[in-house]
Amino acid sequence: MMNIGGFVKRVIIIVVDSLGVGELPDAYLYHDEGSNTLVHIAKAMGSLQIPNLESLGLGYLVDIPEIKKVAPPLGSYGKMGERSPGKDTTTGHWEMMGIILDRPFPTFPQGFPQDLMDRFHQAIGRKSLGNKVASGTEIIQELGLEHIRTGRPIVYTSADSVFQVAAHEETIPVKELYHICQKARQLLKGEYGVARVIARPFVTRDGKFVRTERRRDFSLPPPKETVLDLARKEGFEVIGIGKIEDIFAGQGLTEAIHAKNNSQGMETTLRKTRERFAGIIMVNLVDFDTLYGHRNDVSGYARALEEFDLKLLEVLQAMREEDVLFVTADHGCDPTTESTDHSREYVPVLIYGEKIRAGVDLGTRESFADLGKTVAELLGVEGEIYGRSFAGEVMARVQN
């Protein structure tokens, strides 16, 4: 039996938010039949310049000429299905770190109940506008002027389990908006326990209302320990970059670094990779989802993938012998469909490092949690973690 634990000192997990690779068998339950974020973007563009992702084996997960199968690939590769019900960010990340939900977070397609809104208004000392399912970019155009006139925050939701609060930065300062969202988070529990309360500040630019990069998410805390918690308890550093702190409600992290966009997220990841530490870096690159997937911006999504691919090369070059890199996603968000919602899809898992065997096909994993279980085994961390590790399949040069 291979003694794997402890042979890896550092794990880097990059979550390309919404990069799905094909519909799950139960996609019809979510009205997502035919969704395939990566394939449809590549076909719509005719080609994608992503040589570094291709070198890690991405082309073996999709059978289209627009994405090359590099032979032999430098990394191991596979795709993962989601066991938990749902297709949202929180569910995907939690499952990735070992938590399987038995029921989805609640959604509110008719808006939030009046009794809840009455308590929310009492808590924040003012009434709100909206309270309906809406596109965030559209509702601020619709209600922005009334919001400025009345000082009332704009509340809206989507097909996901979210309670979103939008406010103009000159009408309700950002810190006050965060405080309003914290009040909402305190109320949104039990049957109203949405996955995330999201602060959505916006400003006026060129005569239009435009959302800023000062968004903040307030998630429910995970119901049990994740791989991040277990690693921290064992003395490892656990660094969350982007909205990782928000997704896990700050649990399991030794350091949290927020990023304004993909570029800053990757620059921070590169800087941390060059530093000396032992443990986990987990980064979420949210622009793919927020700026391009939800807005059905195919060319923007493609351009962001190509920019990410260039930065990925720098991370690969900065890695040390004891490092292992995972590139994955948390759900899909196919920008070529009529829907602007997330899509229920498989996600890629690409694994690279000097201790990783090249060209191993991991096939289709039953759960995102297989990644977390693998991370735990690589670092020698033990605990109650759902999933089936593939560390033994991909590790090279381990002791017997």
Rank of each mutant, 00 (worst) to 15 (best):
E138W: 00
E169M: 11
I148H: 03
I139S: 11
I139W: 01
G144M: 13
G136W: 00
V133L: 15
I180D: 04
A134P: 05
I148P: 01
R152S: 07
G193T: 02
L129Q: 01
E142W: 00
K175A: 12
I140H: 06
T204N: 08
H179S: 12
T204G: 06
G144S: 09
Y178V: 07
R149D: 14
Q182S: 05
Y156E: 10
K132F: 01
A199D: 12
E169Q: 12
Y178L: 10
V197R: 04
L188K: 02
Y156N: 08
V162Y: 05
L188I: 02
S158G: 15
A199T: 07
K132M: 14
S161T: 06
K127P: 00
V174T: 15
P201C: 14
E146R: 09
A166W: 03
Y178M: 09
A166N: 09
A195L: 09
I172R: 12
E176W: 05
P153T: 08
Q164A: 14
L188E: 05
I180R: 01
T204P: 00
S161Q: 07
A167V: 09
V203P: 00
L145I: 05
V162C: 06
R152V: 02
R196E: 11
C181P: 02
V162G: 05
V162P: 03
E170F: 03
I154T: 08
E146V: 08
R149H: 07
L177R: 04
G136L: 10
R152M: 13
A184L: 12
Q186T: 05
N131A: 11
V174W: 02
V165N: 09
P173G: 11
Q164V: 10
D160K: 02
V197W: 03
E176G: 06
C181N: 11
G130W: 02
V174P: 01
H168N: 15
T150W: 03
Q182A: 04
E170N: 14
A199W: 01
H168A: 13
L143W: 01
K175Y: 07
L143H: 01
G190A: 06
T150H: 06
T204Q: 13
E146S: 07
Q182G: 03
S161D: 09
I139G: 08
I139C: 10
L145Y: 00
R196Y: 02
Q141R: 02
S161A: 10
F163T: 01
A195K: 07
T171R: 11
V194Q: 05
K127S: 13
E146G: 03
K132Q: 15
L143F: 00
E176D: 15
E146K: 11
A195G: 08
V174R: 07
G130S: 09
G193E: 12
L188N: 02
A159F: 09
G130Q: 09
D160Y: 01
Y178P: 03
V162H: 04
G130Y: 03
V194S: 04
F202I: 15
E191W: 00
R152N: 08
T171W: 11
L177Y: 06
